[in-house]
Amino acid sequence: MKTRVLIAEDEPLMRERLITQLAKVWPQAEIVMVAENGNDAWDGFLEHEPAVVFLDIRMPGLSGIEVAQKIGRSAHVIFITAYDQYAIDAFDAGAIDYLLKPVQEERLYKAVQRAQEKLQALFSDVGVHKLATADSRTMDLSAILSSIRANMADAKPPKMKWIKASVGKQIKLIDVDDVLFFQSDTKYTRVVLAEYEALLRTPLKDLLDGLDGDQFWQIHRSTVVNAKAIAAAERVDTERMQVFLKGHPEKLLVSRNFTYLFRE
């Protein structure tokens, strides 16, 4: 019997890897939606009512934790993250699981087995799905989620204040507050300021964890903009927008997955 599954993961390679692995370890899984941010994940959950949800903890929009809180006991949640391992033992003892990136196929198989066991307990003899009751979970979901949030907050490294980047033959020390935007450029990252731009060898995806997410917004898979530098945003078509910067002529494209940042 097919099991309806939703996947929410904002990293394309991780997303494709998980889909491929699931096809191997769980042929009965019917992937009803693949979301690239938390907002779409929650909308998709309401629309498709999956029984199992794989959630990246840190995504644009709603975080995986926030989506899981909304889901509550209506489905089994399996977290996927590159971050701390504080809650692994707790999840291993409970009804939801916690996978670390890069997800190993053997570990995914164990998580799938656990999910299948939990699902079987929720089906009556005639195969009608019943919502989980408080006794059907060995641990309290809200307590686990609160614990993870607290541990993640404690584990957060300090946000970067300065970066070293190449400008011609020079290596400049740049205050991140002066940066208008970062943009992937082949094997480098462009660091664009009001008066000049520099090149950084660090990939954009590796910069994201060190930047203050409240100030630096990812608006495209290849672009992160300083919110303080945004003058305005306008719609390009039904799915995309573009950003105008203060005192800089370049316009930045906002992909569909990040237009939620500019909703009223």
Results as ranks from 00 to 15, higher is better:
M1Y: 03
K2H: 04
R4E: 05
V5E: 00
L6D: 02
E9F: 13
E9P: 01
D10N: 15
D10I: 11
E11W: 03
E11S: 12
I19K: 14
Q21K: 06
L22S: 04
V25F: 09
V25T: 09
W26L: 05
Q28I: 08
Q28Y: 05
A29F: 09
I31C: 08
M33D: 07
A35S: 09
E36K: 14
D40S: 14
A41N: 01
F45Q: 05
L46V: 14
L46S: 08
E47V: 12
H48E: 13
E49R: 14
A51D: 04
V52S: 00
D56N: 12
I57M: 01
G61K: 03
G61V: 04
L62E: 04
L62K: 15
L62Q: 06
G64L: 04
I65T: 04
I65K: 01
G72I: 10
R73V: 09
H76W: 10
H76R: 13
F79Q: 01
I80L: 12
T81R: 01
Y83H: 15
I88R: 01
F91G: 08
G94L: 05
A95E: 01
I96M: 12
D97H: 15
K101G: 06
V103D: 00
E106L: 08
R107H: 13
R107V: 15
Y109A: 15
A111R: 07
A111D: 01
Q113P: 05
Q113Y: 06
A115G: 10
E117V: 11
L119H: 05
S124I: 08
D125M: 05
K130D: 14
L131D: 07
A132M: 13
A134F: 05
R137N: 09
T138F: 10
M139V: 12
D140N: 15
L145M: 13
S146G: 11
S146P: 01
R149I: 07
N151I: 00
N151C: 08
M152I: 01
D154C: 03
K156S: 11
K156W: 02
P157F: 11
V167T: 06
G168S: 07
K169D: 10
K169P: 02
I171C: 05
I171N: 03
I174M: 11
V179G: 00
L180C: 03
S184N: 08
D185L: 12
Y188M: 07
V191A: 02
L193K: 14
A194H: 14
E197R: 08
L204K: 01
D209Y: 08
G210T: 11
L211I: 05
D212N: 15
Q215M: 11
Q215K: 14
F216R: 06
W217P: 02
W217E: 01
W217K: 07
Q218V: 04
S222C: 07
N226K: 05
N226A: 06
A229F: 09
A231M: 13
A232N: 15
D237G: 10
T238V: 09
L245W: 02
G247T: 08
L252T: 06
L252I: 06
F262W: 04
F262K: 07
F262A: 09
R263Q: 15
R263V: 15
